[in-house]
């Protein structure tokens, strides 16, 4: 049966503690042969241990499916973008390069792209995805919009991402502050910041740690 429309997947990156429970739980499913379909990316390990979960965002108009020359990626009517079908995938890597979120991974040993399909074998029969089931800090939540509004009185979900001039709508939601929320999460906007200086100074941590002694 199709995944119900009222059940949505919410990512709250500020709650991610980097415990890797989602990664290990995802790995256990034999349908993708011990490879994890979710990963945790460090925002900047030299500055902080903060991680962000990366799952397939199940875009309304999936770029991966659009660029696939073998028509191996399908989006079912419930909005879930399925992983590449083995009989069709030719391992060309178009989808790996095209996805703005960097989700599809090429399994070179199997000549097959694999990506998160929201645990379709579970969600299509009323279960939750494995990652949301094991997440201890509610960084990943699968449920209704009413549930998330009750759990997060100061946050709200949005489904719009901006990559330069391209705007993408997704089935997976990301939590943003409820007060003054952005219209879209501007991903490439952050790339315009000046690159970090190569030499050791100025180090923002040093500025906090080493306070000049008061004179006299």
């Amino acid at each position: 049966m199709p995944v119900p429309a009222h059940l949505e997947f919410f990512i709250d990156p500020s709650r991610c503690i980097g415990c890797q429970a989602c990664v290990q739980a995802c790995r256990e499913c034999d349908s993708h042969k011990g490879q994890t379909m979710i990963q945790l990316d460090y925002v900047d390990r030299s500055l902080s241990t903060q991680t962000v979960p990366v799952v397939c965002m199940h875009c309304d108009v999936p770029t991966c499916a659009e660029v696939c020359p073998a028509d191996a990626i399908k989006r079912t009517e419930d909005g879930i973008v399925q992983t590449a079908r083995k009989p069709r995938c030719i391992a060309c890597n178009n989808c790996v390069l095209a996805c703005p979120f960097g989700v599809p991974k090429m399994q070179t040993s199997m000549n097959l792209m694999m990506k998160c399909d929201l645990c379709y074998d579970r969600t299509s029969v009323g279960l939750m995805p494995m990652c949301a089931t094991v997440c201890p800090s509610q960084a990943l939540h699968y449920g209704t919009r009413e549930e998330i509004e009750r759990l997060r009185p100061r946050s709200m979900p949005i489904d719009t991402f901006q990559f330069g001039s391209q705007v993408i709508h997704t089935r997976v939601r990301m939590m943003v502050p409820r007060n003054d929320p952005p219209a879209a999460i501007d991903v490439t906007g952050a790339f315009d910041l000046a690159p970090a200086p190569q030499d050791m100074a100025p180090d923002p941590l040093l500025a906090n740690l080493y306070v000049e002694e008061p004179a006299g």
């Binding site: 290990q24 994890t36 050791m200 180090d203």
Partner: peptide, 19 residues
């Protein structure tokens, strides 16, 4: 998979000590 995540011990230190 747990070993893949962190295969060998690493010595954690601050850049002001390392540089």
């Amino acid at each position: 998979p747990l070993l893949d995540h962190y295969p060998v011990p690493r010595v954690e230190m601050h850049p002001t000590l390392a540089q």
